[in-house]
């Protein structure tokens, strides 16, 4: 395999892993605070369609990004209302959010399918991008990919080193104790859910404004769900999330690799790979029930109300 092909593979891996990384970071923060939001796919799609419509009608890509983030937060606030305030089952509410988001995005975007848009162009950093193998991967991406690097640094620092990270974790591990210490449990959880929505919206905007600048129904193709598996894969640890996102990015571009080395496998079979990989990863990681129980936030998915 020649070095150009490898460099291309690395480049595409990061591009493909970026939406996964963005959603998964949001979901990680959410789950750390004890809330399981299965609505990622729906929020991502809604973000993608809103971002696309805004960008195409105003001509401003950045306005599209901002409104996509707000769109994701809007949907996540519905989740917060039903699951946190009304104490509904989080699994069912998350599913409802996905079904609603898929329907809403197809409905809103019906008139916008297939319209062309010039998305974010790559920003090639001189010299650095000429480094063999990793140059293009790290320094010839579009601005949203760079933004994802920065956001990762912020999220990692927040979760591992900051007081805010401790608070989120306390709320997720033992809400009763956290509440007794005077932490506003529901408030922290609501913020975490909103952050998850913002990240899912951003991931959607990345899809419709940078990755493939267009809108198509269900264009997220299960990435929101894969991101949920990624959090399990990462055992709720932020560095492994980064690794996992790019690993899955790689699984999704294997068809390019196959073409590159001249393998003729039908595209529909290759398209299954990320999903098969998700199952394999879940199997390997969940096998040891004790391990999952050790790393998962203790109160994950359980409704909580003050005064109990």
């Amino acid at each position: 395999m020649d070095i150009d092909l490898l460099s291309n593979i690395f480049f595409a891996t990061v591009r493909c892993g970026t939406p996964l990384l963005l959603v998964a970071m949001g979901e990680l923060v959410c789950e750390k605070s004890g809330v399981l939001n299965l609505g990622q796919e729906g929020m991502m799609l809604f973000g993608a369609v809103i971002g696309f419509i805004v960008a195409l009608s105003t001509g401003s890509l950045w306005l599209g990004v901002v409104l996509a983030i707000l769109a994701g937060m809007l949907l996540s606030s519905l989740f917060a209302l039903v699951a946190l305030v009304f104490n509904a089952n989080q699994v069912a509410t998350g599913l409802a959010l996905t079904i609603f988001g898929v329907g809403l995005s197809s409905f809103v975007g019906a008139a916008w399918v297939g319209k062309p848009l010039t998305g974010f162009e790559p920003i090639v950093i001189p010299w650095l991008s000429d480094i063999p193998l990793i140059g293009r991967m790290l320094f010839a991406q579009d601005i949203l990919v760079y933004l994802s690097f920065a956001l990762f640094a912020v999220v990692a620092w927040t979760l591992l080193k900051s007081r805010v990270g401790l608070i989120i974790q306390a709320v997720g591990e033992n809400p009763n104790a956290a509440s007794a210490m005077g932490l506003p449990v529901l408030f922290v959880r609501t913020l975490a859910v909103l952050f998850g929505g913002a990240m899912a919206g951003l991931a959607g905007a990345y899809l419709s404004l940078a990755y493939t600048p267009m809108w198509a129904e269900n264009m997220s193709a299960g990435r929101g769900w894969i991101a949920l598996a990624l959090v399990v894969f990462a055992s709720w640890r932020v560095w492994r999330l980064l690794l996992g996102a790019y690993l899955f990015g790689f699984a999704s571009i294997l068809y390019l690799v196959a073409q590159g080395v001249g393998l003729a496998i039908p595209s529909n079979l290759l398209a299954m790979l990320p999903y098969v990989a998700t199952i394999v990863v879940l199997v390997l990681l969940s096998r040891n029930a004790l391990r999952t129980r050790l790393y998962a936030p203790v109160s994950l998915g359980q409704p909580w109300q003050s005064g109990h």
Partner: peptide, 18 residues
């Protein structure tokens, strides 16, 4: 758009849970 079916579906489930 025919997606109105899914939109109503999602709304209904959401309202039910609420």
């Amino acid at each position: 758009p025919q997606a109105i079916t899914q939109l109503f579906q999602g709304m209904m489930l959401f309202f039910l849970l609420a």
